[in-house]
Amino acid sequence: MTPTDKAGAAPGTLRDGRRLRIRTGDGRGVPLPLLLPALAGLAFLLVPLAGLLVRTPWHSLPGLLAGAQVWQALQLSLICATAATAVSLVVGVPLAWLLARVEFPGRGLVRALVTLPLVLPPVVGGVALLMALGRNGIVGQWLDSWFGITLPFTTAGVVVAEAFVALPFLVISVEGTLRAADPRYEEAAATLGASRFTAFRRVTLPLIAPGIAAGAVLAWARALGEFGATITFAGNFPGRTQTMPLAVYLALQSDPEAAIALSLVLLAVSIAVLAALRDRWVAAG
């Protein structure tokens, strides 16, 4: 029941130990029926990346990346992913708190619905967004006629599509952190005169900040790579809705070398994200 028990219940610790034992093996060999598929799996993951690097036209790379369209797409990607992350934070952290701290009927169902976009094909998400927020959508028609707001096929639409797929990552990550955090700190705050909101703002939020940061990075990475929902809901207009993944796909049709160059940029960004998260997930191995 001590805070360390709860917060320190790192699932990695046990796994660490177990993996270590397999690795040292106590002088016993690794069985081939396990080793061969494992190596095949590893190769399956790494060979495509190697292919990307091998086929990169390193000499013409600066020229390919110098094109205005590349930077336009990258800039749009970064801006939209960041905006989508911000949207996810604003609504996702309170949603995670609600799921972790408040008991209400149907909580399990709500949690399942929140995670639905995780398993939903993004294209389906995009179609669903069109049905909801499109010009004739159930919400979109009111947005259009009352406020003159149109979301589909706009930069704002990109943010909406990306937030739709990224939000569950943030909610799940933050909810997990909240569950691991000792709720008695909130009780202590209450006995000191803090309202539930004050306790959340001044005690819980600082305590779960690392979890929120990790969730935000995860959501941001997911938003950055978003393709299906974006192209369905926001289309593919250079400078307005054409993000990097869309640009890569489009370039592949006309100029494969450009596609490789663009992919390389995304790969670099992904590796940077992985490096930023290494303490949390990568180092768990």
């Binding site: 209450a190 006995t191 539930r196 305590l207």
Partner: peptide, 19 residues
Amino acid sequence: PPESRPVGVVFQDYLLFPH
């Protein structure tokens, strides 16, 4: 509610806010 009671609590493991 607890926040409106004139009550002070010293918890077993103190629960000092670590941050």
